[in-house]
């Protein structure tokens, strides 16, 4: 199994992404390193192969978006929409992530070691996100399925209009959004949390230091008393 390196100051990003989209990539190469990313957009977006990709530096918008199978690591920070609509595989941001990290992601694991910006996990559809730092306002807005684990604090309107996703927060929550409430953490949820913490490199963090938030399910059905609001 070969390992390959691309320097984005020398090779065009489109060429690198086309290589990563090539047929039978996983049989040709096991690891791809990308240096000098310098904040370029859509680096390693749209992968669909069981390979390891390391982006050494700061990535721009939509890095590793729509990821399937690949294991992508960004050693620096990531711009807006990292791992948006990820289907499977994993994305690990060692620095901070900007707004809308993991938006609409349907599967796989997104790990952010630093802070995440606003709208982290917006419309989450089944993926798992573990944020080592804090998240900005409107995170997990309309999140439908999956788990958002926050080791730091959460901003305003956490989990607004949430469906069946779970939010675990260790720090303070500035405010909860509409229809989001604290839940009792049962053994099943503790197991999910412990597993995610271990996979994200936080196995020493106690699950008992977290609170669980989820949907109060009061917005699921039309309520006639709200008719005046329409």
């Amino acid at each position: 199994m070969e390992s390959l390196s691309f320097d984005l100051s020398q090779t065009a990003l489109r060429e690198v992404n086309q290589f990563l989209h090539g047929a039978d990539l996983a049989s040709k190469v096991s690891k791809v390193s990308i240096t000098q990313p310098d904040g370029k957009h859509a680096i390693a977006a749209g992968l669909n192969a069981d390979v390891e990709v390391e982006i050494d530096g700061h990535a721009g918008y939509y890095a590793a978006g729509m990821n399937q199978l690949a294991r992508v690591t960004i050693t620096g920070s990531a711009g807006t929409g990292v791992a948006e609509n990820m289907m499977s595989g994993s994305v690990h941001v060692k620095g901070f992530a900007s707004n809308a990290a993991g938006a609409t992601a349907q599967g796989g694991l997104l790990v952010i070691d630093g802070d995440a910006g606003l709208r982290c996990g917006i419309s989450l559809k089944g993926a798992d996100i573990v944020v080592g730092g804090s998240v900005g306002s409107f995170s997990a807005f309309m999140a439908q399925a999956g788990n958002l684990v926050i080791l730091g604090d959460a901003g305003e309107a956490l989990g607004d209009s949430i469906y069946e996703a779970r939010i675990f927060v260790r720090g303070k929550v500035k405010s909860l959004g509409a229809d989001c409430e604290e839940k009792t953490m049962g053994d099943a949820e503790k197991k999910i949390l412990a597993d995610l913490l271990a996979r994200a490199g936080h196995k020493d963090v106690s699950v008992d230091s977290f609170k669980l938030y989820g949907s109060a399910r009061t917005l699921y059905n039309f309520h006639v008393d709200n008719a005046g609001a329409y």
Binding site: G39, K40, G76
Partner: peptide
């Protein structure tokens, strides 16, 4: 965006 900061001298030592 970061892409406008990437070429500054010593950017790797900067607090971004």
């Amino acid at each position: 965006e970061f892409r406008s900061l990437a070429h500054l001298p010593g950017i790797r030592d900067a607090k971004v």
